[in-house]
Amino acid sequence: MTPSERNFRLTRRGVLGLGGGLMLGALAGTEAYAAPRVHTRAEWSARPPRSATQVIAKPDHIVIHHTASSNVTDYSLAAAYRVSHWIQDLHMDRNGWIDAGQQLTISRGGYLLEGRSKSLSSINNRQNVLGAQTANHNSHTIGIEHEGIYVTASVPTALFEKSVLTCAWLCQQYGLDPHAAIVGHRDYNATQCPGDVFYARLPELRDRVATALNA
């Protein structure tokens, strides 16, 4: 990780296959849900990292972010791929990092995408990769970018539902208690991220994830 990644000098923003066949129960009602589909770096044609990605031990916290980008109304998979390219270009070309800083990204249309190189394989092996998404806390956290800005705007249903599934999958993979493990970026750093509206829904997110894991 470069010094700029460690220091997180620039303001953030302005800015997985199936998880082992895991079945997550009843996010609403009694229907069971499979672990979320993750669109890989190969699928969205990510640039290669500038240097080797460091695989580390499993995280103890899941950090919720927003990208603070426009709240687009194009909810397509193509739009999800575009936002992944935008994030990676911002982090590599402007911030000078080796790759996208976050491990996972969820688009406003509810698509889940792999971020930093080797993130998906590491999660499936109950490990993590050293990211650059939460200053001074990258060694023990995994970060999920949520496309959009949620200071005053509502969180799209598709995005929030995929966040529930994704956090439940991560909590199962890493043996985490969602009520203790799921935090907002602002809990660690001086930032508005993930926005007042999204941050106010973190208790709901934790409860929904706990319900999924207990079903």
Results as ranks from 00 to 15, higher is better:
2 T>K: 07
8 F>I: 14
10 L>I: 15
10 L>C: 05
11 T>V: 13
14 G>N: 13
15 V>I: 15
15 V>W: 10
16 L>S: 09
18 L>I: 13
25 G>W: 12
28 A>E: 06
35 A>W: 14
35 A>C: 11
36 P>H: 04
36 P>G: 01
39 H>D: 15
40 T>Q: 14
43 E>H: 10
47 R>F: 12
47 R>K: 02
49 P>V: 00
49 P>C: 00
50 R>N: 03
50 R>W: 03
52 A>D: 03
53 T>E: 00
54 Q>I: 15
57 A>W: 09
58 K>D: 03
59 P>D: 00
60 D>I: 07
60 D>N: 08
60 D>G: 07
61 H>Y: 15
70 S>Y: 14
73 T>N: 07
74 D>Y: 04
74 D>N: 07
75 Y>G: 12
75 Y>H: 13
77 L>R: 11
77 L>F: 15
79 A>H: 06
82 R>L: 14
83 V>Y: 09
83 V>G: 05
84 S>F: 07
88 Q>E: 15
92 M>T: 02
95 N>T: 07
96 G>R: 00
96 G>W: 02
97 W>F: 11
99 D>Y: 01
102 Q>I: 11
103 Q>F: 06
105 T>Y: 11
105 T>R: 03
111 Y>S: 04
114 E>Y: 09
116 R>S: 07
116 R>D: 01
118 K>D: 07
119 S>R: 09
120 L>D: 14
121 S>E: 14
123 I>P: 01
123 I>M: 01
125 N>G: 13
127 Q>A: 08
129 V>P: 02
130 L>G: 05
132 A>G: 12
133 Q>M: 10
136 N>Q: 10
138 N>A: 15
139 S>Y: 12
139 S>W: 10
141 T>C: 14
144 I>C: 01
149 I>D: 13
151 V>F: 06
153 A>P: 02
154 S>N: 03
155 V>D: 00
155 V>K: 00
155 V>M: 02
156 P>N: 00
161 E>T: 01
162 K>I: 07
162 K>N: 02
163 S>W: 00
167 C>G: 00
170 L>V: 00
173 Q>A: 13
173 Q>C: 10
176 L>K: 00
178 P>N: 02
178 P>E: 02
186 R>N: 09
186 R>D: 08
187 D>C: 12
190 A>N: 14
190 A>I: 12
192 Q>H: 09
192 Q>P: 02
192 Q>I: 13
195 G>Q: 01
196 D>R: 12
197 V>F: 07
198 F>E: 10
199 Y>K: 11
202 L>T: 15
204 E>K: 06
205 L>M: 06
205 L>K: 04
206 R>C: 10
207 D>W: 10
208 R>G: 06
209 V>P: 03
211 T>Q: 06
213 L>M: 01
215 A>S: 05
